[in-house]
Every structure is written in C-alpha cells, then in structure tokens.
Design a protein around this nucleic acid. Structure first.
Lengths: 159, 159
DNA sequence: TTCACTGCAAAGTTTTTGCAAGGAG
DNA sequence: CTCCTTGCAAAAACTTTGCAGTGAA
C-alpha cells in the first residue's frame, strides 16, 4: 500500500502541533509509529502495528505502541473502535472518509464501510440534552453475503 | 428492581423454544441465570451477573455464566455491546426499548439512552447491498455535562 | 539539568479452553 | 445410555503498570 502523501503530511503536522501545545516530546519513536500508521489498512489492531514495526526492523516496545496509539487518538489522528469483539480497532481519520458507517458480519467478523450522507448529516446535526457529542459510531451487525451463502448450504431449518 | 413479569415470561418462553428446537438441554442453571438476567440493570457485564448469582446463593461457574450469556444472545434475548472499553456489556431486548441509541461519555464511561424514532425508522428501513442487517448499534461518544463541568474547572487552555 | 518517555518484564483483567464428572432426554 | 453441560483450574488474549535507565528540551 502506498502512503498518501497529503494525509501523511497533515497527520504529522497535527501530531507536531498536539505535542508542542502540551510540551510533550517529539521522540523518534512517535514519528516512526505515525509513519507506519499511515500505511496500515484502514482498520487495524495494536498488534498489527507492532508486527509492522518489527517487520520494518524498527523495534519499539508494545508499551510504546499502546501509548502512542492512545496519543494519536487524543490528537484526533486516529479513532478507536470496539467492534463486536474485545480487541480494539484503530482507524485513520482522513477527513474524507468521515461520514461512513460500518457493516460488521457477525459470522466472519469482516467489516465493510458504507456511506450515507443523508444519515450522516442527520447525525451530525443532532444535538442531545446535557451531552456534547464528539463523534459517533454506527455499526450495523448482520450477515454478509458470503457467509449467508455458506450458511444456507449447511443449515438445518432452525428458525 | 422488580422483575417485569410479562418480559420474564416472554423471555423464558423464547429460551425454551430456542433450546427445544435445537435439542439443547433445559438445565436448571440456564433458567436460574435467565431469572437473574431479568432483574439486572439495563446494562450489565458478565461479572455483574456472576456476582448476582453468588449473592443470591446460587453458585454457577464463570464458564457457565459466559456460556449462557452467549446462548441468550443467540436466542435473541440479550444483545451484546462493546462500548468504548474492553468489557462486553449485555442488554436485555425488551421489544419496547428497541429503538434507542447510546450516548457514551468518554471521560467517565457512563451510558445514557436516547430515543429518536425518526432516526430509528430511517435505520430500520435502510438496506445494504450484499448484506443482511440484523440489528444496529449507534453509539455517540462525547462528554456528559457532569464531566464537562469538572473539566472546565481544571483544564488548561490547550487547543 | 529535568522529567517525559521508553523498554522490559511482571501483573492485571476479561474470556476461553481442556478435561473429567454429572445429569437431561 | 448418550452426549450435552457443568465446574474447576489452567491458559489465552489483550492491555496496563512499575521501575530503572534514556534522551529531548
């Protein structure tokens, strides 16, 4: 996968700004991790990233991976999801892909993205009493067509 | 909290039907657990339920609690959520409360429910290519007014 | 120089698994 | 009598923590 240079530059700038404002340190590890984050698949888990760092021969500890992921979430560069299972998934906030939702297959766990601007604008404009929304996560759970096909073949007629 | 008898009866019937159809066993543990599930707060985690069983002096293993929760999810009696953190939350499907969404405070983790029938009907009627939706989970993440007040008092003017 | 950051290993937390004993059908 | 289910303990899976050493500002 090729890194999108425009996004990469923007993300790096966002991180620098975030760190500067709070007088946090611009360590090489943080930028090395950010570089790999920019080349990950749209959704990844902490250990995928750790693996990528190892593959690239840039060793950092798992602790640092976890710390930095949390930092990137705080900096508004990543979003953290908890889809149907326990492992946390991270997703890059690109600005372009903000208005999308997730279809999660309850059989195979695969995640598809869908866009629905009408729905998105409805959600964006929604306000709530005594609550300041920052972002939302709409997950539609169901069965993808691949799993539906497999199930049909082997299923008993049980409701 | 008083058990709602109508719901309890319906849930028990649903479980019996589910077990019968698949020739699974109607063990006392399963019904004992279902009874407690019906008296739990709207959202609970596996260990809350385990604790309740102990309190009531009806000992079952954690294994059985986990197995049975999964069973109840399959039977359509419970729904499993993974709100912002790793612990799985379970929620009773009452039939009445189906069209609600969740506001999750990213500071204190508290969860509020909101209803929005326009949004709900929009989601209920939405179809997706190559995907059969079963249910959806809309979580709005943000800051509740209580935490917003606390934060305002102690926050530096950062960003 | 200071103290935020890193790395390692150990601990923590929630959930799953292996296997023998038990009991529902 | 069959084999689904339970319970216990051990293991697994993911994440966090303690602490000493390092290095950014």
């Amino acid at each position: 996968m090729i890194t999108d240079n425009k996004n990469a530059v923007a993300a790096r700038a966002a991180l620098v700004q975030y760190l500067s404002r709070r007088r946090l340190r611009k360590t090489p590890e943080r930028f090395a991790i950010l570089d790999r984050v920019m080349t990950m698949d749209r959704h990844f888990v902490a250990d995928d990233l750790y693996g990528r760092m190892e593959t690239d021969g840039y060793h950092v500890s798992r602790t640092t991976v976890y710390n930095t992921l949390e930092l990137l979430v705080s900096a508004g560069i990543l979003r953290r999801h908890n889809f149907g299972r326990t492992k946390a998934h991270y997703e890059l906030i690109t600005g372009l892909g903000i208005n999308h939702h997730h279809l999660v297959c309850t059989v195979c766990g695969k995640i598809k993205e869908v866009k629905d601007s009408r729905l998105a604008s409805m959600l964006d404009n929604r306000t709530f009493p005594a609550f300041s929304p920052e972002w939302y996560d709409l997950c539609v759970y169901g069965v993808c067509s691949t799993c539906a096909r497999k199930t049909r073949k082997s299923r008993q007629k049980l409701n």
